[in-house]
């Protein structure tokens, strides 16, 4: 499913990039590119959390004392998004 989404995304951006090259300027404004970077990072984090989250819920269902550990493990990929946010301030 992920690959399908990426493919659709590439198809949408592809023509834009070609037009941009013809006009000799970036296809999309820098701020939009930064937003895109954050969005993609969030997508990646979400996908990572999918697996971890379901495993964590499974573990918590068996042993409630694992709630804290499960929560931390689940939100670990969230750091990806936080790091990606740096890009927004850099551009």
């Amino acid at each position: 499913m992920m690959s399908e989404m990426l493919l659709a995304f590439a198809n949408a951006v592809g023509p834009l990039a070609q037009e941009g090259a013809a006009a000799a300027e970036p296809a999309i404004p820098a701020s939009a590119a930064a937003a895109l970077a954050v969005g993609l990072a969030a997508l990646g984090a979400g996908y990572a959390e999918r697996g971890i989250g379901s495993a964590a819920i499974g573990a918590i269902a068996e042993d409630e004392s694992l709630f804290g550990t499960g929560l931390i493990m689940t939100v670990l990929p969230e750091t990806l998004v936080i790091l990606a946010l740096v890009v927004v301030f850099l551009v």
């Binding site: 697996g51 379901s54 495993a55 964590a56 819920i57 499974g58 573990a59 269902a61 068996e62 042993d63």
Partner: peptide, 16 residues
């Protein structure tokens, strides 16, 4: 298949 969920629960029960 929801391997993550099932294996997490199964491993916990295996350990018990």
């Amino acid at each position: 298949s929801n391997y993550e969920y099932v294996t997490a629960r199964v491993q916990a029960r295996r350990a018990a």
